[in-house]
Structure formats: C-alpha cells, structure tokens
Simulated scan of single mutants.
Amino acid sequence: MASFQKRGKTWTAKISYYKDDVREFVTKGGFRTKKEAQYWANENELDISNGSNLKGGKQLFTDYFLNWYETYKKPILAKSSRLRYQYTIGIIMNNFAGKRLDEITRSEYQQFLNEYANPLSVDGKEKKQRSLSSSEKVNVQIRASVRDAVEDGLIKRDFTAHTKISGRPEKPKEMKYLDAGDADKLTRALESDINIAHLTKLMALVSLQTGARFSEVAGLTWDCFSEKFNTLRINKAWDTLGKKDFTDTKNPQSKRVIKITPHMSEILRNYHKLQLIKLEELEIDNPLNLIFLSQIGKVPDDTAANQTLHRVLKKIGAKDITFHGLRHTHASYLIYKGVSIYYISERLGHANYSTTIRVYSHMIREMEKVEAGKTLVALSEMGRSVNKLVNKRAKNG
C-alpha cells in the first residue's frame, strides 16, 4: 500500500508491505509531481509482488559484495583464487565506498572500468595501463555478484550489462611459449648446469618437462618423486606469498601424478645426492624435505626463477618468455606431437577439458589444418585404390 505527501515543492511516496509477517516501509522523495511519485510506487509495488527485496538494494555495495564473497565463493575456492577476490574487494572499497547497491548506474560502472584500466597519474607520474586480462578478471567477479543481486530481487537492473572492458593488449599467444627447436635448446642449456647454486635452472627444467606451475614445482618434496615409477606427484603447492610453508593446489584436479622420462628421473636422483652433501656442508636443515631448498635454506621465489630463465633464453638466442610460459611450452609441444588433448589436460591439472581447449585453441586450430590435409590425402588415396581395383577386375574380365 502506498501513501503520498507533499513537502514544499516536491512529493514523497511511502510504500508499506509485509515480509515474513513483519511490516516493512520504503520511502522515496524528491518527485516533482504526485503522478511521478505514484508511478514510482506502482512500479515498486509490482516488484514486491514479484518477490523483489527493495530494502536489500539499499545496502552498501561494498557490504553486499563482501557478504556475497563470504557466502558463495570463499568456502569453495583455493587460497590462490581467494587472493584474487580479496584484491577485487580492495578495488571495490576504493572505488564504490559509500555507494548503495541500488544507486550505481551503468554509466558509473563503465567509468569505473575505464579508470581501472587507465589509472590517473599521481604527482605527475604516469601510471602503467593495466592489462586487458586484469580488467577482465575484476569485471567477471563484480558482474557475477551483480547478476546474483538481480536474481535475488535486491536490484531491478544489472548495471554491469553491456559495459566494455579495456586495457593493455596481451602478448600474442605465440610469444608465450617456445617452438620445438628453442624448447630443445633450452632443455640442453638447463641440463648442462644442474647444481644447488643454480637451483632455479632445475626448477625451470622440471616445469618444462612436466607443465607444472611454479608454485607446484616449488612445493615438491622428495617423497613426491618416484625413481622406480618415473613419476612426480603434485599434492600441494608452495605458498608464494608467505614463503614459509605449503598451501593447497589451485583446484582439486591439480592434485595429480605426472609421468617423467627416465632421463629426468636420473637427473633428480643425482641432484638429490648433491643436495644432501651440500646441505650437510652448509649445516642447513631441510625439515620439510623440499627438493628445491637453496644453499641459504630458502625456496627460490618466482622473481629469481624468472630472472634466471630470462638470462638463459638470452644466451641461447630464444625469445623471452616467463616461467609460466614453460607450462605453455610443455602443452604446446605435446599438442604439436599429436598427444591427446584430454591426456594433456589431466597432465596440466586443469579443472576441465574445456579450459585446455580454450587456452590452447590457437595450437589446436593449427593442428586441425594439418589433420585436414592428411584427411584429404587419405580420401584421395582411397578413391585411387577403389579405381585401381575396378580397373583390374574389368581388365581381367
């Protein structure tokens, strides 16, 4: 039920309704005419009858997003994924402080996306444009929460709909991995210098040979290595932020056993012997039984690993990629060699096969072209075989 009151030159509308046997009120003022106030009241009474929660939209967007994250996301996410959401929470706190959920317009949200991708300069210092992928990750998380708010009847419209992200373009996909020739050169360069002083080279070699993520490589312990079966078991990861202990893998599928070559097994076995001798000489304990414990008693961080990789790549004349690019190189090389995409997906520990297909669609398309050529050749040969058989029978008559 609605009531209306004129205050000065404007009208105020008040709606009353019952929710869970409790009477609720929603009031809005500032209407120029009574007809405008009536239109607002009629529209919102219809929303209430359809299950909308008008009061829910009046909460601060920062409070809503935090509660949404705690309820729907935090319980099911790995620590690394939770950190990404916590980053987004910080962004929302900085950009939407004091803003109610039902106040944000599509144009305001688009302005936020524009400013996020292109930060304003501070004290005359230009800020680096954020990457397109960074903008996309923030937008995806916010959009999911807003769509749930619409679904729950807290707001009537999705203010993230039909907005556009921007940012620094990503590197071309072919710049994220090495071709087969450079992968071979890198393998030989890394194998030629395996010792505890250059530990990050062995880390790079393991990633190149297994496709494991940096945190997974850093979290390997000697009980994960089986010389008998030539395998490495990924059952945990290294906490690259805390840098003192293990953390969970990115997703449940990331827990896996990866087959390695006998040669890789031999390298690890020989390195283990060297590590035991060196750590004893340096009087360094290894209570966590880590494979990659440096001569100062710490696990190398990803910055050190990337720096080492950059130097080696420059030395062999290969294009520059990141440590994560070794994972892409591993997968791309296997696709190039015709290995099943489903096996590659399990080897990489992807959450599902569609992730692998999406990430490596560029390689799959290239291989499809090759397979299409093979198919046409095969079909042509089949036709010629049939014709030869028919001609032979006709000749023999």
Rank of each mutant, 00 (worst) to 15 (best):
Y64Q: 04
K273C: 05
A331K: 05
K19G: 03
P252N: 05
N114H: 05
Y353A: 10
K392G: 08
G325Y: 00
I260S: 08
A378K: 14
Q295C: 08
Y72S: 02
K9W: 14
Y353I: 07
V370F: 04
T249D: 00
T261G: 04
A372D: 00
S380K: 15
K259W: 13
E174H: 08
K58P: 01
H328R: 11
L186G: 02
K244T: 08
Q38H: 13
I357V: 01
E381V: 14
D193R: 13
Q59P: 06
E70V: 04
E281D: 11
A78M: 10
K127P: 03
N67W: 04
F65C: 06
R130C: 02
I344Y: 01
G211K: 12
K9H: 15
D182R: 04
L220V: 06
L279W: 11
Y17F: 11
Q141M: 15
N195F: 09
A149M: 09
P252K: 11
E281V: 08
A13E: 01
H198N: 12
K99I: 05
V150K: 14
K278F: 10
S340V: 00
I104R: 12
V339L: 00
V140R: 15
D152M: 12
L113D: 10
T231C: 05
E283H: 14
R393Y: 03
Y336K: 06
K125A: 07
S294C: 07
H198E: 10
D47W: 15
I267T: 02
R32V: 11
F31W: 01
K395Y: 12
K171W: 07
G51K: 13
K73I: 02
R393H: 08
S134P: 02
F31I: 02
Y18K: 14
H162P: 09
G56M: 03
R168A: 15
G397M: 07
E191Q: 12
Q129I: 06
S131M: 08
I234T: 02
K74I: 02
V138D: 02
H272R: 09
A218N: 10
V138R: 06
Q59I: 09
H330Y: 00
D21T: 10
E227G: 12
T163C: 13
Q111S: 12
L276C: 12
Y271K: 10
G219T: 08
Q86A: 06
D184I: 10
Y343E: 00
W238K: 14
G167V: 06
E108Y: 10
L46Q: 11
T308R: 14
N94E: 15
R157Y: 15
S294V: 05
A304G: 08
E170A: 14
T163S: 07
D63K: 11
N53K: 15
I194Y: 12
S215T: 09
H350V: 01
T247W: 08
T261H: 10
T221I: 07
R188I: 10
E24R: 15
Q295A: 09
K164V: 03
K99R: 15
S134K: 13
N44P: 04
S340L: 00
F96E: 00
S16K: 14
E103A: 15
L379Y: 13
R256N: 04
G373T: 07
A180Y: 05
K298Y: 05
R106P: 03
V299T: 09
R100A: 10
I89T: 02
D223W: 06
P119I: 07
E280T: 14
L202A: 08
S16L: 11
L348R: 09
I291A: 04
K273E: 01
N352E: 00
A218V: 06
K319D: 03
Y342I: 01
S133G: 11
